[in-house]
Nucleic acid binder design. Sequence first.
DNA 1: GTCTATATTTCGATAGAC
DNA 2: GTCTATCGAAATATAGAC
Lengths: 199, 199
Amino acid sequence: MSQPATDPKRRPRGAMRQRILDVALQLFIDQGYEATSLREIAERLDVSKAALYYHFEQKAEILIALHLRLHEVGLHVAKRLDDLDTGADPVKAWLSLLDEFIENLKANRDLLLLHQRNMQAIRQIVSEAHENQAEHEEMEERIRRVLSDPRIPLRTRVRMGCALGAVIGTLLDIDSMFAGVSIDELAVLVREAARDLLA
Amino acid sequence: MSQPATDPKRRPRGAMRQRILDVALQLFIDQGYEATSLREIAERLDVSKAALYYHFEQKAEILIALHLRLHEVGLHVAKRLDDLDTGADPVKAWLSLLDEFIENLKANRDLLLLHQRNMQAIRQIVSEAHENQAEHEEMEERIRRVLSDPRIPLRTRVRMGCALGAVIGTLLDIDSMFAGVSIDELAVLVREAARDLLA
DNA sequence: GTCTATATTTCGATAGAC
DNA sequence: GTCTATCGAAATATAGAC
């Protein structure tokens, strides 16, 4: 009903939309969302500013679209959070959450970088967009809840947080930290360190 | 010669300047540098926009002043980095660097938050201000150099990075992670975890 | 779908009185 | 040191032709 009535096999559907998102993602990571103008995005794509408005009603929608991409990717990690809520050994569950997270990070480092470097803008825009629906609870929120769960000893919770911090700190900004080392090689070592932390 | 000719004992010297910096710091942390207008800062201080320009020639100077504050604070940590360069046991040196860092973080969490959340803006503005002088090498740069030093086994370097990530990840955004736990209590546990990581 | 205008708003910054 | 008033630039967004 709501799908466009064109042949679904005719592929370049929304191709321009994707190109916009790709360029915006790079610029938002490098300069930040607020510091990036639609003019810049349009110039890189060699189209006019107005062309962008055919694909997105507002600038904020570009950021939201990218944020949603990350959200889909994060669903697997969220599943592991459910395990944590439903009993089971929290340390074990956390370790497999970290594994899932590392895989996600390897495959979508740019989206996570976007999130890390534009949290303020994303928070503000998303909260305005959903108004008060509360709809999907943010993964961060759920992580915070686990780390505040009094049923888990504080010492353990802190180490869970440390392990997560270690993963993010070493694998996300890899280029500026361990330039030249492959991410896979790093991931193995970090995973091992996280395990030691929670042993 | 260049000092103002007023009585140096008459204290509220630059009091307004400090109030501006304090308000700006809070807003830059909450909303980001680019998303914060001088109008907002002026409103919070209940002065006019133009008043701000008596104390700072440009908006960017406010950010630079805050960045310099952080720089002074970071000098102690930088000393520990020297130890790392001049031989000695890198693991031991790293641990005492982390201790110094944790103390700094406890005393100046807001400045570090500012830095973490406005890296892009700071980088761009600072690089424009110093043009090509290269003057003071940024601490991050020095940390990266240590973590790339081939004389230290990769496994050790990764763990050094993990330990730093653990400290930052758990102690910097403390309010959103371990709400309700005192930072001192947390710091003890994180310090211990870092030591285990590098054991 | 993309273009050339243009409207509208807001921002950083300045001039000059007090 | 602070104000009012204003400037010029740049940003988001829209109108309407093609």
